[in-house]
Simulated scan of single mutants.
Amino acid sequence: MKNSIIEVIKDLKKVKRGHICYFYNNEITYINNVVSFIVTGIRNGNHILLVENDRNILLINKQLEKVLSKKEWTFLHVINNYDFYYFNKNFNPHTIVNHFLENIEPFLKKGASICTWGLIEWGEDKEIHQCIEEYEKEVDKITNEKGIISVCAYNAGRTPQSLKELLIKCHGVTLTDDEAVKLR
């Protein structure tokens, strides 16, 4: 899907915003898509806020070391996803949205363009689905209001169908490892 993510981003750049839900199955494909997103974004003049787990950060950085210049690295801003989403030791949508805004506002105030990629993970908490939906609805509003392209990534095998259906309603585009579906 490497080309699909690039094509989707090109389309979204024309309207200067987009909220993408990515359900991945293959971890290698996932890492390759994150790297493509970062490289394409940076080379288009965007800052990238990457919210990712430590294991993936190592794999992503390994690939980026081969293609990014020293100057391009300054456009990448990485936060551990556990620290980001569990900022107050729980997945509180309002706290996370405020944390999200705190991280993007400095760039927007400077007139810089920013794109975000966040891997959302959770433990066995079944009650979290409503919180995730609430968070995603708020991020959808923010991406439209602020002109941001934002990818929210989920492991397809760990995401129940009922949550997938809720997430699809909160995003303008849904991606999988194999295809892109524009919803609005």
Rank of each mutant, 00 (worst) to 15 (best):
V139Q: 13
K16I: 14
H99K: 03
D54W: 04
V97A: 02
K89H: 09
K71A: 13
R158G: 01
E72T: 11
I168A: 11
K62T: 14
E65K: 15
N92C: 09
I28F: 03
G147E: 09
E72Q: 13
T159G: 07
I38H: 04
V151P: 03
N98L: 02
L101V: 04
T95E: 05
D177W: 00
N61D: 13
F75W: 12
E27Y: 13
I31F: 11
D125W: 06
N46I: 04
K13Y: 03
T159V: 11
E65W: 00
I60H: 07
D177C: 03
I104S: 07
K164R: 10
T116M: 07
I149P: 13
L49I: 12
P160S: 03
E52A: 07
W122G: 05
L167N: 04
S4C: 00
E72S: 06
I6M: 05
N81H: 10
V8P: 00
N144Y: 15
V8E: 02
L64A: 07
I31Q: 14
K66M: 13
N25P: 10
F91K: 00
C115L: 12
I20N: 06
F100G: 01
H99N: 05
H94E: 14
I104W: 02
I114A: 08
L68W: 00
C115Q: 14
V15W: 03
L12N: 02
D177G: 04
N26K: 07
L119F: 04
E27S: 12
N26Y: 14
W122E: 06
G41F: 02
G123T: 15
D177M: 00
V151D: 00
